[in-house]
């Protein structure tokens, strides 16, 4: 790609995607009476101060319960939603300070793969039309060639067997491959995959996961992989961030996090994953209830009200403290890591 004055800095050697203090607060619709008496609008703090850096060629896992802010974070990263605070840098350039042409370049280079291969495809479009659409939006040349190449990358081969098909003529696995082909056709440098295999049959999951992993490697993309299931994250991700009520509470190399989670929330998420081993009987859950709506958050540590290990010190908010290990940096936002470790 020719480097012109306005182009993004493709020689940048820092993280491809970097966010600091990222916030996405949704104003909560309150009653009219409340507004009339001049009550303050409360906010749903879906993303509440996230720092994260993802390198090219790296897949970052994002795990947490339903409603903890995973999809919102993913959508803010690729510009589908405007953040309400903090900064996003792509290739070292602040999103806010990008020129129009840089913004366009950014949009072409970030893409999303959604959970539901049934809902995310337009039923009236053929595979070809569906994959061509983003090329037209971005006014790209050599469209036919690009469509064929994307289908081949998504392992829908030979492409001529697929271009004329409509969604109802495809299996679930094939549909998700079409979504992947559409996301890839612009040759993005960063993708967000939001639960991309949870609707698929077990027999095809592995092939889609392997495909995504190979693509990240071969195309040297950065990726954020979202799931509530650590067993899937384990297959895909180099590093993993654990999210609770809009905040990252633990982050580390995936294998290390799975073998030795530090935060009580990460422990609970891991413990809840069923394992294909009959010697394991379902055990008493470590966590009760569900996370509260992130509107009025508790004082101190967010997780305190549900935490089995909460103590006096937890009324103060813990930082995401890093400890260096042989395999890289592992960090947890919990005062009680050592106590719990020794239990």
């Amino acid at each position: 790609m020719a480097i012109t004055e306005q182009s993004l800095n493709w020689d940048y050697d820092g993280p491809i995607m970097e966010v600091t203090g990222l916030e996405k607060h949704f104003p909560q619709s309150t009653g009219i009476i409340h507004q009339l008496i001049g009550g303050e609008t409360s906010h749903v703090k879906a993303v509440d101060g996230v720092d994260m850096a993802i390198e090219s060629g790296e897949t970052m896992g994002l795990v947490g319960e339903s409603g903890c802010g995973k999809s919102t974070l993913g959508e803010v990263l690729i510009g589908l939603q405007e953040p309400t605070g903090g900064s996003i840098k792509f290739l070292g350039t602040e999103l806010d300070s990008m020129s129009d042409s840089q913004r366009k370049e950014f949009r072409r280079n970030v893409q999303m793969i959604f959970q539901d291969p049934y809902e995310s495809l337009n039923p009236r479009f053929s595979v070809e039309q569906w994959i061509r659409e983003p090329l037209e939006v971005h006014d790209m040349d050599n469209q036919d060639e690009r469509i064929y190449e994307a289908l081949e990358r998504a392992e829908l081969t030979p492409p001529e067997n697929y271009i004329g098909e409509h969604p109802h003529e495809l299996s679930g696995g094939e549909r998700q491959r079409v979504s992947i082909a559409r996301a890839l056709v612009l040759e993005p440098k960063f993708i967000v995959a939001d639960e991309p295999v949870s609707m698929l049959d077990v027999s095809v999951r592995a092939s889609i996961l392997n495909l995504l992993r190979d693509l990240v490697d071969d195309l040297d993309m950065g990726a954020l992989y979202i799931s509530h299931d650590l067993s899937l994250i384990r297959q895909m991700c180099d590093r993993t961030s654990v999210m609770y009520l809009g905040k990252v509470v633990e982050r580390g190399p995936t294998e290390q996090l799975i073998k030795g989670p530090k935060h009580p929330y990460a422990r609970a998420l891991l413990d809840a994953v069923p394992v294909p081993n009959p010697d394991h009987n379902i055990s008493e859950p470590q966590l009760e209830g569900e996370p509260p709506d992130p509107v009025e958050l508790p004082e101190g540590c967010n997780f305190r009200p549900r935490c089995p290990f909460a103590a006096e010190e937890c009324f103060e908010e813990p930082g995401l403290d890093a400890f260096q290990t042989a395999d890289g940096e592992h960090a947890a936002a919990c005062w009680r890591v050592e106590t719990v470790d020794n239990m």
Binding site: S171, V202, S203, R205, Q235, P276
Partner: peptide, 23 residues
């Protein structure tokens, strides 16, 4: 056996998953 080998686990050592091509 195909299903069992296609299934991920958080237990034990990480291993590659197989898939069952075809429909």
């Amino acid at each position: 056996l195909g299903l069992q080998n296609a299934f991920p686990s958080v237990e034990g050592e990480k291993r590659d998953l197989t898939s069952i091509p075809g429909s």
